[in-house]
Nucleic acid binder design. Structure first.
Lengths: 219, 219
DNA sequence: GTCTATAAGAAGATAGAC
DNA sequence: GTCTATCTTCTTATAGAC
């Protein structure tokens, strides 16, 4: 043992090392539980049991259930942003959406959490509603910005700003919808259908047929 | 009063008239509650309170909560089918989807119920999962059938059967996704975005630009 | 057919020992 | 920082009066 129990001497410990790890474990477990059961039906007891602590311990890290939800959403957000580097500008950003879907197929948790909470957030009083609303606004705003850049750089055929917003909303609606179909029924060929739809959109935007490179599978 | 209270004579009454009305009221209320709170979070107490009866009365009409859900889903299904007459064949069926979305905008309940339960049915153990899966399969199957008919009748440009299924899945994914965006944030221009997307799909299928008639608003 | 009353259990939250 | 134990509240479901 590195630190024997000393009753009076002041020992400077590694600051909250276990606490931080525990906190991360709780957030990861809560993300899984909220993803599969939703926020309302996912219980603190389930989460505590999965982590291997008692429900009371959760309250030491997060004030209450909503506090835990906030931490889960913040964590989800940072993970989503980390996988979506800001240096991919213009049309290339949309080509990359296929990789995002491939990632989601192998890592069901993140998209399941988002779509489960989106469905629940149909209810105006849901605690995640504002977050989900803002997330959609951000995604649409950023997508529209990138598509305008692509247009101004001559990467795509001309569209007016209003059309661009409708195109972006349609693209993400289609992406969410296919992923929802796949979550409800894993038999659905998620990547196949999405690749088909994405390539059609990119062809229409650019007027070219070779924008989406063929899928390469590891041998 | 038509039937005074007779203690011994056997009076054949109108069979369960109040019971049937009550049953319908319960189903309508349960549909609203399940739509806004989901199945797990929607409680029998809420439903009973809205109807104006006690929770125990619900058990007289439906064995348990899942029985009530089954009745709600059956009712939803029959309403959805009633608004979608089978005699509209070929391409006209898809042109009509805009009317379906306009209806959903004015009657939020039906689509909210479907998408809320779809989100919950991400969980393999959800009692509505099989229904939702089957519903998607039916919609895709019927849509593909109609599009094949349209192709064979020369209404659209040629596509192979596999492409048709992907096109249908994409169309309904887009439709669900836009409606989800609108449910979460009513500021979204549901009909505008959907009309934009639908007209593009129809133009691509047919090679013509006038397939979706312009929106006429009542004066 | 509908009610009151209540059983039996599970939820979120908290007090206090260690 | 984590635990046991407990509180209050809310759920589903049922028993029995009317």
């Amino acid at each position: 043992m590195r630190h024997t129990k000393t009753s009076k001497t002041k020992v400077v410990r590694g600051p909250y090392k276990n606490g931080i790890r525990r906190r991360r474990e709780i957030i990861e477990s809560a993300s899984r539980i909220f993803a599969s059961h939703g926020y309302n039906s996912g219980t603190l007891r389930q989460i505590a049991k999965e982590v291997g602590v008692t429900p009371a311990a959760l309250a030491r890290h997060f004030d209450d259930k909503e506090g835990l939800l906030s931490a889960v959403l913040a964590n989800w957000d940072s993970q989503a942003r980390a996988r979506n580097p800001g240096d991919v500008r213009g049309l290339a950003h949309f080509v990359r959406l296929r990789d995002a879907v491939i990632y989601n197929q192998a890592n069901r948790g993140l998209i399941e959490l988002f779509l489960t909470l989106s469905g629940e957030s149909t209810n105006p009083k849901h605690p995640a509603r504002e977050f989900i609303q803002q997330r959609y606004r951000d995604v649409v705003e950023k997508g529209a910005q990138l598509l305008r850049e692509a247009r101004d750089a001559g990467e795509i055929l001309w569209m007016d700003d209003e059309t661009i917003v409708a195109e972006i909303r349609t693209l993400y609606a289609m992406m969410d919808g296919i992923q929802l179909q796949w979550l409800v029924d894993p038999e659905v060929d998620l990547v196949g259908v999405f690749s088909h739809a994405l390539s059609i959109i990119l062809e229409r935007w650019t007027g070219r047929k070779d924008v989406l490179p063929p899928l390469v599978t590891r041998t």
